[in-house]
Amino acid sequence: MASEAVLKYLVDTNRPYSCADVTVNLRGAFPKSAIQKALDALSEAGKIKCKLYGKQKVYAAIQVDTVTEESDKTDYDALFKTLTQELADKTNALKTVEINLKNLTSTPTTDSAKTAINEIKNRTEATEKKLEILKTSTEVVSVEEKKIIMTEHEKLLKEYRKRKRICSDMLDAVLEGYPKSKKTLIEELCIETDEMVNFKLMTNS
C-alpha cells in the first residue's frame, strides 16, 4: 500500500520531503494523489509530522530520540532557506540556458550561410561584369535613364546607411553589458566592417 511505502521511505531517509519529492523519489510507484492521501492520513494518525511553509507542506517521520521541537523547527527553517536559494539559482541558470538556446536557434546554419554567400558572390560577379561592359560601352545613357539610375542609387544608399546605423546601435546596446572590447565582440560575432573588407561607398555627389 502507498501508506506503508511512504512511511518506510520517510523513516529510512529521516529527512523532510514534500509530496512531489516523495512521488519522484519513489520512482512513480504510486500516483501523486495516492501519495498525498497517504501523507495526510499518516499525519492525522500521528505517525509523521507535517510542517506548513507558505503553501508548501513538508512531511517527516517521527523518529525515536529525535531532537527537541525547537531544534527541529530551526532545522526546517534552515532547510527551507536552502531549498529556496537552490530554486532561485536553478531558475537563473534556466533563464541563461533559454537565452543561449534562443540565440543559437536564431543563428543561420552552416549550409544556409554558405548558400547565402554563394548567392551574394554570384550577384556580385554579375554586377561587376555588367559594370565592366558599361565602362567600355560607347552607348550614351539618356538623361531620363540616368535620372532613374541615380534615384535608385540614392534609395539604396539611404537604406544602406539606415541599416548600418541600426547595426551600430545594436552593437552599442550589447556593449553596455559586454565585459570585453568592441573589437572582441565583432570578432566573436564574425562581423566584417566596411574597413575590414576595404569597402568604399560611392555617393551621387
Rank of each mutant, 00 (worst) to 15 (best):
A173H: 08
C167Q: 09
L201W: 08
M170E: 15
M170Q: 11
E176A: 09
C190S: 14
L171C: 03
S205T: 03
E187F: 04
Y178I: 00
M170F: 13
S205I: 02
G177N: 14
G177P: 02
Y178A: 00
E187V: 08
T193N: 12
A173T: 10
C190Y: 06
L189I: 03
R165P: 01
T184P: 01
T184F: 06
N198H: 12
E187S: 09
T184Q: 12
E195N: 13
P179C: 01
G177H: 14
F199S: 10
D172Q: 11
E192Y: 12
N198M: 11
C190L: 11
S205M: 01
E188C: 07
E176D: 06
T203P: 00
K200G: 04
N204Y: 02
T193G: 14
A173Y: 13
C167R: 13
A173P: 04
D169N: 08
Y178F: 04
Y178N: 00
D194V: 11
L201K: 08
I166V: 08
T203H: 05
V197W: 07
G177F: 09
T184Y: 06
K180W: 03
S205E: 03
D172L: 09
E188K: 15
T203S: 04
K180Y: 06
N198Q: 11
K200A: 08
E187W: 03
L171M: 10
V197T: 12
I191K: 10
S168K: 10
E187K: 15
K183S: 11
D194E: 11
N198C: 09
F199P: 07
S205R: 03
K164F: 04
C167D: 10
R165G: 02
E195I: 12
F199M: 12
L189Q: 02
M196V: 13
E188M: 11
V197C: 14
